[in-house]
């Protein structure tokens, strides 16, 4: 009898906590659903009206005349992202290998905090530095007006480095020590062990790092707007100005209305599908290999 009410009170409390947690989770799902529905409901009409092939591949963007082709921006996003990754991914993986496998403990930790610092800088600061340093440098030494694919690639590359480095390093550190010992005990040198056992074993984690870095690069807006010139024209060289999909939205949303606004939502929708597709790839890779190839 004595324990009855206490027990009951506790179970009330438990069920209250459980309900609150379930409500939070439900709210979260709803927020995602609402955003998705909103983007699609606003974006789909123009998207379908123009036709998806014309919208995505046509490079003619004259919103005031009702011509909506974001081909130049799709290309722009791809150009900036790919050229950022071309240099940042190898550098990032090499740095991660150095931190995890070669550097003595204190240097590895110091590099780790530097990387954290790099990750904490707001993107507008990267854009500002890019505008004041990278753009003039390109203008003076390589030609053009400096606002270019290259400037975007340099700034974006620096911005995705922390993502690539951190996730790759964690993947490399998670490789069981037995692999390295087994390899060294066969008379393999340290660099042979890294190249042939440790990196292959960390492969799925490294691929995840690359894809997440790519997602960050495609989604980044502010820094890119500041250094790429933003001409809605398909770039014909790495020194040409370029507009990405994210830039397109942020540059025109202030004054767009009607179909023009709808077309910006369509741009966002295309971007959304891009990012979701990338995340699916990450999940697939992570599942296929398991982290570090374990079952």
């Amino acid at each position: 009898m004595k324990r009855g009410p206490a027990k009951k009170r506790r179970s009330h409390k438990e069920s209250f906590i459980e309900k609150t947690l379930a409500f939070s989770a439900g709210l979260f799902v709803m927020v995602i659903a609402v955003i998705t529905i909103f983007i699609f409901s606003k974006g789909l009409p123009v998207f379908l009206q123009v036709g998806w092939q014309d919208f995505i591949f046509d490079t003619d963007w004259r919103p005031t005349r009702g011509i909506f082709g974001i081909g130049a921006m799709v290309l722009g996003s791809i150009a900036v992202t790919v050229s950022a990754m071309v240099w940042a991914v190898p550098l990032g993986i090499a740095t991660a290998v150095f931190m995890a496998e070669i550097a003595p403990g204190h240097i590895g930790r110091m590099l780790g905090s530097l990387v954290e610092l790099l990750a904490g800088i707001p993107s507008v600061v990267y854009g500002f530095v890019g505008l004041l340093v990278v753009v003039p440098f390109i203008r003076q030494h390589l030609g053009g007006n400096g606002l270019s694919v290259l400037a975007g690639a340099i700034v974006l590359g620096v911005m995705i480095l922390p993502t690539v480095i951190n996730i790759s390093r964690d993947a490399i550190l998670a490789v069981p020590k037995e692999y390295a010992e087994g390899s060294l005990a066969l008379g393999a040198s340290h660099h042979q062990t890294i190249a042939r056992v440790i990196i292959p074993a960390a492969r799925s984690g490294i691929i995840t790092a690359i894809v997440l870095g790519m997602g960050r690069a495609i989604g980044e807006t502010m820094a890119v707007v500041m250094v790429t010139g933003n001409a809605p024209v398909a770039p014909n060289s790495i020194l040409a100005p370029v507009r990405t999909m994210t830039s397109n939205i942020v540059l025109e949303m202030g004054y767009a209305s009607g179909d023009h606004q709808g077309a910006l939502f369509s741009t966002g929708m295309v971007l959304f599908v891009f990012i979701v597709a990338l995340n699916l790839v990450v999940n697939r890779v992570a599942k296929a290999g398991g982290i570090n190839g374990k079952k």
Partner: peptide, 27 residues
């Protein structure tokens, strides 16, 4: 290479049986 070692926990590499055995000769 002359004095090989086998550890407590079997440390097979996450690769095929063939590649595990061929690892040493290859390096």
């Amino acid at each position: 290479k002359r004095v090989g070692m086998v550890f407590q926990k079997p440390s097979v590499f996450p690769m095929s049986i063939y590649d595990n055995v061929a690892y040493g000769p290859r390096i």
